[in-house]
Nucleic acid binder design. Structure first.
Lengths: 149, 149
DNA sequence: CTCCTTGCAAAGCCTTTGCACGCTG
DNA sequence: CAGCGTGCAAAGGCTTTGCAAGGAG
């Protein structure tokens, strides 16, 4: 919630106009406290008022991403999820079978990030880091995943 | 190329019928030697004959993924890319600005993978690992990424 | 007053699906 | 010969875009 004024402020500073829609979208995103889809942002605003169009949500989120204030990630497939950068970095473990999502602190990745920067000059953005695989439940539950045609 | 008979063999073994289309798709995927989109597979077949439909390409790739013979990844946004598991694991560094793609050996990730397995029972699949960020070129070229509205 | 933003609706991209015919095993 | 696999075309999900009206600065 404290993120909200900050983000709005940053937008204004960069010459963007502050509209009620943008305030609501930023507010919804900030209060979500984590990763949300554009549609969830849209819905959480609709709960109170139908004053925002889904296209505007996409456009505003896009602006925030372009300005580097918000991260956009395609965790598995399908919808993108958004989060304020103030949310802090973490890794996402996405189970490719059941779709479950676990967030992990990025401590273990720091050396990797530094190595990538040193060797390749690549500046990794941890907000965007998602790792696909099988969660413990799906590993034990499906030793034989496929059952043929 | 040597992968092709193997994959076909595995498909047959699992009860799938081997059609000319499937052979061509597998062949195209194997000879691509890396990550390709469904559309590229489709095109590389079209170059020789228009005997395969794009829907069939998607269906066959899907089958291969389901059977665990092929990996499917959404590197950045948009299209998914496919690769045979024989291609071997590696990390993808995707520049969120210019879209450039660099493959890195996964040595540096092994400790992370093991940690995830130990702590969370999560079996990470490196074929699917992509890291978003800024490549060296885009970092120096755009110290100020945004230019406002 | 200027022109950035919005709403609306339509289009876009990538992918999936229903159905009847054809081919594999 | 049984039934899986294919082609075709249409639909689907998510996101973007063109245009005119409206509101911020």
């Amino acid at each position: 919630m404290t993120h909200c004024p900050t983000l709005i402020h940053q937008l204004r500073q960069r010459g963007y106009r502050i509209t009620p829609q943008r305030e609501m979208i930023v507010q919804a995103l900030a209060s979500a406290g984590g990763h949300v889809t554009a549609e969830k942002v849209f819905e959480s605003i609709q709960d109170r008022t139908s004053a925002v169009n889904i296209a505007t949500v996409y456009r505003t989120l896009d602006t925030l991403v372009t300005e580097g204030l918000v991260s956009r990630t395609h965790l598995s497939e399908g919808q993108a999820v958004y989060a304020t950068h103030l949310h802090g970095p973490h890794i996402h473990l996405v189970c490719r079978q059941c779709g479950s999502l676990v967030s992990v602190m990025p401590d273990q990745v720091t050396p990797l990030v530094e190595k990538l920067r040193a060797d390749h000059g690549f500046s990794a953005e941890l907000q965007h880091l998602s790792i696909s695989g099988l969660c413990s439940a799906c590993q034990s539950g499906s030793l034989k995943t496929s059952q043929g045609p």
